[in-house]
Write a protein that binds this DNA or RNA. Structure first.
Length: 196
DNA sequence: TATAAGATTTACT
DNA sequence: GTAAATCTTATAT
């Protein structure tokens, strides 16, 4: 019943969070939460480069109850609550004590469309998971998944879909104007689907 | 202790 | 285009 794929060749312990953020585009993201299996292809990511990145929650080495999970070894989930109502899902990367994380900003739903639609108040397909908080709502992700291993029976990566490198564009991150010059860094990666 | 703003989304004017 | 939803963290009294 529960399918597990631990064959992902991606190295989440790498310190090159920028490379990983680009590499994650095209991977299937699966969840098995509340008895429901959902998946989608990752189509948008943002890299947050630890203590040297003003836009990161771990900037300057900040370590709080919320951010402590980022300091663990790469390959786990960092889920946090924001704006008083939304959950955002990140994948922690890098070795222990290096608080890198990659925000998953959008996926293309594949498995469990009906479930996602229910969780998303019957929104149309295109609006199911095209934003970081929408994706969490559709997949059923909340604080219970914080710190969960990527590759467990709860959250795992599936196979990687082949995407033309030319269809992945980099640009500045969203909603980080407070980060000064770091807000301009091209740490955001978007898969532009030419068939749209 | 109080206030402000946030890695956002939605509904309404 | 603007506002409201209202939890966590940081900064200022």
């Amino acid at each position: 019943m529960v399918m597990i794929s631990n064959e992902s060749p991606i190295d989440l312990l790498s310190e090159d969070v920028l490379h990983l953020a680009r590499e994650l585009i095209g991977y299937e993201l699966h969840t098995f939460i509340h008895g429901r299996h959902c998946s989608g292809i990752i189509s948008e990511t943002e890299a947050y480069a630890g203590v040297h990145d003003r836009a990161s929650h771990a900037w300057g080495g900040r370590r709080t109850e919320r951010t402590k999970v980022m300091y663990k070894k790469g390959g786990i989930a960092y889920v946090y609550f924001t704006y008083g109502m939304h959950y955002l899902f990140n994948i922690v990367t890098g070795p222990e004590e290096v608080p890198h994380a990659i925000l998953i900003r959008a996926i293309w739903p594949q498995i469990g469309l009906e479930i996602m639609q229910q969780r998303r108040k019957n929104k149309p397909f295109q609006l199911l998971a095209n934003g970081p908080a929408k994706l969490c709502q559709a997949m059923g992700i909340d604080l219970q998944q914080n710190g969960v291993e990527i590759g467990s029976s709860i959250i795992w990566l599936g196979r990687k879909h082949v995407i033309e490198p030319a269809n992945i564009i980099a640009g500045p991150r969203v909603g980080v104007d407070y980060a000064g010059e770091d807000a301009l860094l091209p740490y955001r990666f978007v898969w532009v689907n030419p068939s749209l």
